[in-house]
Design a protein around this nucleic acid. Structure first.
Lengths: 340, 340
DNA sequence: ATTGGCACTCCCGTGCGGGGAGTGCTACCC
DNA sequence: GGGTAGCACTCCCCGCACGGGAGTGCCAAT
């Protein structure tokens, strides 16, 4: 029994099952692929694959369906890259390039992925933790409130209001703004605490209260994991006929609404050093997502790691090569756009 | 035949149908409500209501189900306000009050509505068009780019980058910033063009190019209807068992993803002078929403009209009184929070 | 190792019959 | 004239049996 052919059979099963959404039998397999052997032979291979846990049958006397383990093997070793058509590539480029600001770019990117993969698209906003500060702005609001606006090199803007115990002194605010920008601009979060620590020098003890409060707000904002934002698109694709059992979309929607779940997955997958990371079924470690797979990749990397991630969530029986190349393509364009 | 009783019957049908999700028959009706007459009499009333188009039967020899028209009558004349329990009110208050910034407030509000109504919640961000400007900030980025940041009195922050043909002059930017804030702060969009028109005075012709560019960006940003943002929560509630025909959730999700649809509905409903506006089934004028109803109300109004809207979308057979009071309650708290 | 043949399993669509819920109608009552 | 009781009728829904069909596993033969 040839080991190679057995893998061919698995690949054929995955491809056919993805295409037809029906359990695939030995007869159909030899008809649709030139395997050069008879159905009976295939049945032997299938028995072995089932033994190994790569495929399963929904019930006796039905065709076979890939298991999570089967998809995993397919993704890792059996799938070949499926490049996008060049009109597709061009469409991605022009669509993203005409965006106006960061919100617009993210919005377009997420819709694009949803459209290309016909699945649910997820885009994580450029992470504050990994961005560099471009500018800090302090805006007095009334006498006792100060609005702190942070602008990152990825174009993201965050703001916080600060309530003060004492009345504001415009000139102190002005000096602080200048000093802040001198010492903070261009720095990454990891380098900031040091730079900010020296900042109190040159201020009177009473003014230092203000300075410390502002510094605290800045650090807190940048450190807040909870400020990570994720946007979705294409949830309607979950309800497309044949997507999967229709009743199973409830739990999926619940999972998608919990940003925490998505953020955890993103951060876990960031550790995979593969260009495009894939989580299949139970690998997602989330009950609502056991019947889905998640394909992600990072974007916006400059030198070091990537700034944030994008991805696509679909049924276990998704078109893995297609999804992976779509996600990768959008990430590349996204990286290029943000670099300028 | 008493007209009053006929309306009682309609109310009873709506209430029972909402509660049981099953067509309701004459027998069940007299058992569950003290109508004081026999099933046969009810049947006569039902025949009349059906004649009038308020109820219908899915098929011969089935119970009756309210039509869009029936729900409309119910909402307009037959439903009584259902006040929230006082623990509920308290929960709303504390939940919203602990929010940190505008994004946080909006996020909590939308989740709250989803939770209270067990339906899909929609919250529109405070509209730029109806907000007043609190502050304009100009931030030079490199030599030839200027970042324009607008902050409204509702705490919303918008930014745009501006590409210039010539190098920046810091002092001109400084003067422009000061003048802009003097003439623009506190003004609503409608009053702005006048104030901005005089702004070029006192600048040299070359500097006026910059001034005009900035003014154009400010006006454009505020005027952009497309900058209206809407956030959703509770889409998973669509998939709850018995919500409605499960296959019908696809079109609904599609409609919800198109912000345009929601924004149109919001703006149409803003014209209803009723405190809480309701659109039932076909009244939404959108194919994907024919089997849903949309309950909205404005929030953040100070004197004049409201700043934006919140709402809840659910099946035709929703708990109208409950939904309406939940939406109204959240809107009130929201208005209070934003006022401070 | 591969193959043809064959018995076996199980799903699934279809047709049938009975029970039940609900209606509309008619005759009757106040 | 409005309300009521009775009754025949309609239609859904459920369980059931049945047959076709697809697919398997195994065995004997090559």
């Amino acid at each position: 029994m040839s080991e190679d052919r057995r893998l061919d059979v698995l690949r054929a099963i995955v491809e056919d099952y993805v295409a037809t959404k029906e359990p695939v039998g030995s007869r159909a397999l030899v008809e649709r692929h030139s395997l050069g052997v008879s159905p009976a032979t295939i049945r032997n291979d299938m028995a072995a694959l089932e033994e190994g846990g790569y495929i399963a049958q929904p019930h006796t006397s039905a065709g076979r369906v890939p298991t999570d383990k089967g998809y995993r093997l397919f993704v890792d070793q059996l799938s070949t890259v499926k490049p996008l058509s060049s009109p597709e590539r061009r469409a991605i480029g022009t669509f993203l390039e005409t965006a106006q600001d960061l919100d617009d770019v993210v919005d377009r990117a997420v819709r694009l992925i949803a459209q290309l993969t016909q699945q649910v698209a997820v885009v994580q906003y450029p992470s504050l933790r990994r961005s560099a500060l471009r500018h800090v702005e302090l805006v007095p609001v009334g006498l006792r409130h100060l609005l702190v606006v942070l602008i990152t090199d990825t174009g993201r803007v965050e703001q916080r209001t600060l309530e003060l115990g004492t009345d504001l002194d415009e000139s102190v605010v002005g000096r602080l703004r200048t000093r802040l920008n001198v010492s903070a601009a261009g720095r990454r979060l990891s380098e900031l605490p040091v730079a900010l620590a020296e900042l109190t020098e040159g201020f009177t003890p009473t003014d230092q209260v203000l300075v410390n409060a502002v510094v605290a707000v800045v650090e807190e904002t940048l450190a807040q994991e909870s400020e990570e934002r994720v946007v979705l698109a294409g949830t309607a694709n979950l309800a497309r006929v044949g997507s999967s059992d229709v009743r199973s979309i409830g739990p999926v929607l619940e999972a998608l609404e919990e940003q925490v779940v998505l953020l955890r997955l993103f951060s876990e997958m960031a550790e995979d050093h593969a260009a495009v990371a894939v989580r299949i079924g139970r690998e997602t470690q989330h009950d609502g997502l056991v019947e889905t797979s998640f394909v992600t990749t990072g974007y916006g990397d400059e030198g070091g790691g990537s700034v944030a991630r994008i991805g696509s969530i679909g049924p276990l029986r998704m078109d893995y090569p297609g999804t992976m190349s779509a996600v990768r393509a959008v990430a590349r364009y996204l990286t290029r756009i943000l670099a300028q």
